[in-house]
Write a protein that binds this DNA or RNA. Structure first.
Lengths: 222, 222
DNA sequence: CGCTCGATGTTTGTATACAATATGACGTAG
DNA sequence: CTACGTCATATTGTATACAAACATCGAGCG
């Protein structure tokens, strides 16, 4: 992570997720180069990577723009994510090791701690949630599945979603993780897949509701 | 397609698929630059793109190698492709337009023509087969699904697979396309998904059989 | 004999200059 | 007033030189 292109990648990605770079905004290589304090060469690398992860889009004449996810786009992404991650959960159910189950248990405890109290610790929730799902992907033992989810779906969706959660959603999320653990305990792939699908559908509706409420400014920087 | 990086991309991709560049072989930027007659800059672009499409892999120290697909890798890829493309077929079944159905019909007729006679025209088969599946993806109206399939699964798998088909496999492929058309005619998403899944599973076993027969040299250049 | 460390060449990363292409503004003809 | 072509400018693409990182191999040491 010490290469200039890596640093530029992270920096641009953060600016996109925080909203410093607004959806639809054009990204000029030279401008980004100045912001990141590097030359255009590593910026171009970073943009290609961000493009392959759907953070950035390019038009016909190769100009880059911050990806603008409509509600339909998000639903499409959630639909795919539900399909892929429930598949992963099913595979994981029959492959997960006792150690991984224990990791998942500890991870979900950390999630409960993060959302206890008056002011839920959203960054901690997000991080533990990311780890939880990452362990499942690992247990599913399908590199390509993991690649697909991380590259195209997971990051843009997950990272934006939890910002929408209210307390109740956060609690539900924790409970669904518990149910997933139960399904893993019984090594029941169908149950695991169903729980995961439900988990992700609910997350989508939490997002959609918030989207309707505060239309247009779900993500605000700072 | 006139940019140097695009030409380099196609050229390297062809060399990978034809076997001129063997699986596992290291790809040096300078060497490729010389082969393609361009500088390293567009080669780097091309390699990034090929990497995102799983034609090329990179190790920890950023060196590039031709992706080496083991039988397990292929099965994993086929499994994902079956899942994604059956989903696409289901969506297409309730969205496909009469014009698209007609296109599919004509396309499959072209496939039958390509595999009739003593010497099946494999390149024509491949091309029409590609078009057939592309029309279905278009009818499924899910950009992200299309992106996912094309970027990570479809190309490496499909392009290598038909080289394995014997005459009977080719016939089956055509018949399965017909059945898909029947499912579309009834606008039956479950039927369409089931046919597509079966279609792809059979393709995998055709590949696996050929793999076992001629182990290690399924794809030979020239 | 095996190991570590360091020298050396190979390969990738970055900066910069220049070329090619797209865009938008402006002027002119119809 | 519109449509079209031309030119200026903004933006991306490419080549090249140099810097950094890495692998390889051999010498010295335990």
């Amino acid at each position: 992570m010490s290469r200039a292109s890596d640093r530029a990648y992270s920096q641009i990605r953060n600016m996109v997720l925080s909203g410093d770079l607004a959806p639809g905004e054009q990204l000029r290589e030279e401008q980004l180069a100045e912001i990141c304090g590097v030359s255009r060469t590593p910026i171009r690398d970073a943009l290609r990577r961000l493009e392959s992860e759907s953070f950035v889009r390019r038009n016909d004449s190769q100009r880059s723009f911050v990806a603008d996810w409509s509600l339909d786009d998000m639903e499409e992404a959630f639909e795919l994510r539900a399909m892929l991650e429930s598949h992963a959960a099913a595979r994981a159910a029959v492959r997960v090791s006792p150690e991984q189950v224990e990791q998942l248990r500890r991870c979900n405890q950390a999630i409960y701690r993060a959302i206890a109290g008056d002011a839920p610790d959203i960054p901690a929730f997000l991080e533990q949630n990311r780890i939880f799902h990452a362990i499942i992907m690992e247990a599913s033992a399908s590199q390509r599945l993991a690649l697909m989810l991380s590259r195209i779906i997971e990051q843009p969706v997950v990272l934006r979603t939890a910002l929408q959660y209210d307390r109740e959603d956060l609690q539900s999320s924790g409970r669904e993780h518990d149910e997933l653990l139960a399904a893993f305990g019984r090594r029941d792939p169908d149950w695991a897949a169903a729980v995961m699908k439900s988990h992700i559908r609910r997350a989508f509706h939490a997002y959609a509701d918030a989207h309707k409420r505060g239309s247009g400014r779900q993500v605000e920087g700072g």
